[in-house]
């Protein structure tokens, strides 16, 4: 692997119980990338995401990860679960739990971790919410809390799974702005699965479209002029 490569997939096939959903995929994620993954439901977007996170082994091919990602230093923003809606926890408890993947057997948070959590809350503008209860926040605020937690876990790569589900348009815009900020100013590589094509393309530099029969991978501009992009764009708007 070269120095600026974070994840390299070579001729990867993915699927469950021997049934391949995605075949012969080549994909390299570099430091500082902003990749948007789109495609119809059931095309294998979430499967790809699980494989990138290391939760699913490829059926064939190879997924190589940079050294620091192997220990789990990937910031992940999963879809929210039902149980979280009434979970009693303060914002700082949730954000701090992102620090648990640090190396070594330790049982309590160090002061370095605590100040890092505070810093990440500051970055996302939720510092004044730190003692508030997570379940009483708005959807957009909850998403920021989970993003701050993801930042505690990772410095190089964030993976987001349908991050704007359940957000109103203003909160979604906000989230995209934050992601652009993290990508441009902090050099954080971002991989995002989304349905929201139009808004996502404002920030993303490259697009991976997973179709039933074809896979498109290129820049956002190229994508808008490709057959997949035009068709999917129309569907998404119509």
């Amino acid at each position: 692997m070269e120095a600026n490569e974070l994840i390299v997939c070579r001729d990867v096939s993915l699927g469950y119980e021997g049934q391949a959903l995605l075949t012969h995929l080549d994909l390299t994620i570099h430091a500082g990338d902003y990749l948007c993954v789109v495609g119809e439901n059931g095309s294998g977007k979430s499967t790809l995401m699980r494989a990138l996170l290391g939760l699913l082994a490829p059926l064939s091919g190879e997924i190589a990860r940079a050294g620091e990602l192997k220990a789990g230093a990937i910031g992940y923003l999963p879809q929210q679960t039902r149980a979280q809606k009434d979970f009693p926890a303060t914002v700082s408890e949730v954000v701090l739990s992102g620090c648990l993947n640090r190396k070594g057997l330790h049982f309590f948070y160090s002061s370095v971790e605590k100040s890092e959590a505070l810093m990440n809350m500051g970055k996302l503008g939720i510092l004044e919410l730190k003692d508030r209860c997570y379940r009483e926040l708005s959807g957009g605020q909850q998403q920021r809390v989970l993003l701050a937690r993801a930042l505690c876990a990772a410095r190089k790569l964030l993976i987001l799974d349908e991050p704007i589900t359940g957000l109103d348009p203003a909160a979604a815009q906000d989230l995209y702005k934050t992601l652009t900020y993290l990508n441009e100013r902090e050099g954080m590589a971002i991989v995002m699965v989304t349905h929201d094509l139009k808004a996502a393309l404002q920030g993303a530099r490259t697009v991976l479209h997973i179709g039933r029969n074809s896979v498109f991978h290129g820049t956002a501009q190229e994508y808008l002029h490709s057959p997949e992009g035009r068709r999917f764009g129309k569907e998404a708007q119509g």
């Binding site: 996170l53 290391g54 939760l55 220990a71 789990g72 230093a73 990937i74 910031g75 992940y76 999963p78 679960t81 979280q84 979970f87 926890a89 408890e93 949730v94 701090l96 739990s97 992102g98 648990l100 993947n101 049982f107 309590f108 948070y109 989970l146 937690r149 993801a150 876990a153 990772a154 993976i159």
Partner: peptide, 22 residues
């Protein structure tokens, strides 16, 4: 008490915990 924080993380969000190597 020793595993309090880890139990919290696993209770709050299993997918995140798994993805970050817990």
């Amino acid at each position: 008490v020793l595993f309090y924080h880890k139990l919290f993380a696993v209770t709050f969000d299993e997918s995140f915990s798994r993805a970050t190597g817990l």
